[in-house]
Simulated assay, not measured.
Amino acid sequence: MEDDLEKLQFYAAIGEAVTRWSSVEDGLFLLYSRLIRSENLQVLSATFHSVINLRTKLQMIDAAANYAIDDPHLRQKWTSLLNKINRAAKRRNDIAHLTATRCQQLPEGKRYILVPKFTDLREESVVWFHHFWNPSYTTARLKTLAHSFDLLNIRINEYANLFEPAKPLSTNRALIQGRHKSTQTLDVGMLVGKKSPSGSSPE
């Protein structure tokens, strides 16, 4: 594999993984909307997306779940799902914040990797460099993670769909039915009830 091609594939895999994560956050908003059961999706969306920190968003959803979910089985499923989300979020943060580097000594196809910042002298980073020759974030690993983010979004949507929406407006069908995917374009007008899926104004 030529070095330029390997480099291109590596950075493309980073971009794909980071952008695929956005579908996970879309799924989290769907779940939040189902738990809160507000008929005003515009207000709900504004409050949810005004929070930038993912940990805070998850705390909001968890707090809502504690009050909205009575079924012990569904509570247990949420706890399991939340653990999966937290583990995936750690991987996403690694991809976004680690340093890309090239190591000539590694095998072809694995020479471009993500590692901690060279100025980070914390213990966990120093330990990481001891495993430098068995890197965690190669091109293949990044592609696998991108796919895993899609699967996680599906699981979140499936769980959210266990709860009835507050008001199943046809103009919000793409969101309420959990069909919004990372590969689709969702018109903002559909979310706030200002436009029907066909593009015409609702009655």
Rank of each mutant, 00 (worst) to 15 (best):
P72N: 06
A17K: 04
I85K: 09
L114K: 04
D94S: 15
N66M: 08
R102V: 06
R91L: 14
M60W: 11
R37T: 10
I113K: 09
K57I: 01
T56Q: 11
A46N: 13
A68R: 10
A64W: 04
A64L: 08
I52M: 06
A88D: 10
E108I: 14
I85W: 09
S45W: 15
L58F: 02
L30E: 02
T101C: 10
R75P: 02
C103W: 13
C103V: 14
M60A: 03
I69E: 07
L28S: 00
P107D: 04
R92Y: 09
Q76E: 15
T19E: 07
E16P: 00
T19V: 07
T79I: 11
G109K: 11
Q76P: 02
N83I: 06
D70L: 09
Q105A: 14
N93R: 06
L82M: 12
L44F: 04
S80G: 07
D94W: 04
L58D: 00
I52Q: 04
D26R: 07
I85T: 08
V24K: 01
R37C: 11
F29P: 01
A88V: 10
G109Y: 12
R37M: 11
Q104D: 14
N53K: 11
V115Y: 05
T47P: 01
K117I: 02
S22G: 08
E25V: 01
R55T: 12
W21G: 00
E16Y: 03
Q76Y: 12
L58N: 00
T47H: 09
K84Y: 07
S38V: 00
Q105D: 13
P72H: 09
R20H: 14
L31G: 06
G109P: 09
S23V: 04
E16K: 11
Q105E: 13
Q76C: 06
L81C: 02
L44S: 15
D94M: 04
L35G: 02
L98N: 04
N66H: 11
L28Y: 00
E16F: 04
N53T: 10
K84T: 09
S50A: 10
W78Y: 15
I52D: 03
L58V: 00
D70N: 14
Y112M: 02
M60S: 03
I52W: 05
S38K: 12
R55F: 06
Y67T: 12
P107V: 05
W21V: 00
S80L: 13
Q104H: 12
K110L: 04
H97I: 05
E39D: 12
K117Q: 10
L106I: 04
Q105H: 13
L28W: 00
D26P: 01
Q59L: 10
N93S: 13
R111L: 02
Q105W: 10
P72A: 08
D62N: 14
